[in-house]
């Protein structure tokens, strides 16, 4: 999660590609939950939470969908205008992890409406990222700093 300067810079289109697939899958979770397929919804959201955890802890550049992008999509595209620091999208993965975990817990205690709401919230963030290049770290991170949750110590705070 920390803004480690050692992590290589990444193609900014990678995280948007990841967010696009993630958004589609989160939408599927909402649909499954609404149609009463609670177990399927819970399973799919658990898988997505695990993927968010992967992105948050290994870095946005090593997300499994990001590897798909690197392997099959990026070779077909022109070189990006510039590379980006992986810290902001990694932070966004951490936020996705927290929100999807809340959904999983609500699903486990039988609140399928809560699971659907958490998946819908995560969908909105992922969709805005994919479709509008919205940057969660630009807004939410600062608000967490202002609330005193992050940024107090000498380094960037841990898992968000």
């Amino acid at each position: 999660m920390s803004a480690s300067p050692a992590r290589p810079r990444i193609d900014p289109r990678g995280p948007r590609f990841v967010a696009g697939i993630t958004a589609a899958l989160l939408l599927a979770v909402v649909f499954l939950s609404l149609t009463g397929a609670s177990v399927a919804a819970l399973l799919l959201l658990t898988v997505l939470a695990a993927l968010f955890a992967w992105g948050a802890f290994a870095g946005a550049g090593r997300h499994p969908f990001g590897l798909l992008f690197k392997r099959y999509v990026r070779p077909r595209l022109a070189a990006p205008a510039e590379l980006e620091d992986p810290a902001p999208p990694t932070f966004a993965q951490g936020v996705g992890l927290v929100v999807s975990l809340i959904g999983v817990i609500l699903g486990l205690v039988g609140l399928s409406g809560g699971l659907a709401a958490a998946a819908a919230a995560a969908f909105v963030a992922a969709f805005l990222n994919a479709a509008f290049d919205y940057c969660l770290g630009c807004q939410l991170y600062l608000l967490l700093v202002r609330a005193g949750v992050l940024g107090r110590s000498g380094r960037v705070g841990g898992a968000a």
Partner: peptide
């Protein structure tokens, strides 16, 4: 901030 992709 350090986690702002648009800042640089």
């Amino acid at each position: 901030t350090e986690l702002c992709a648009r800042c640089p």
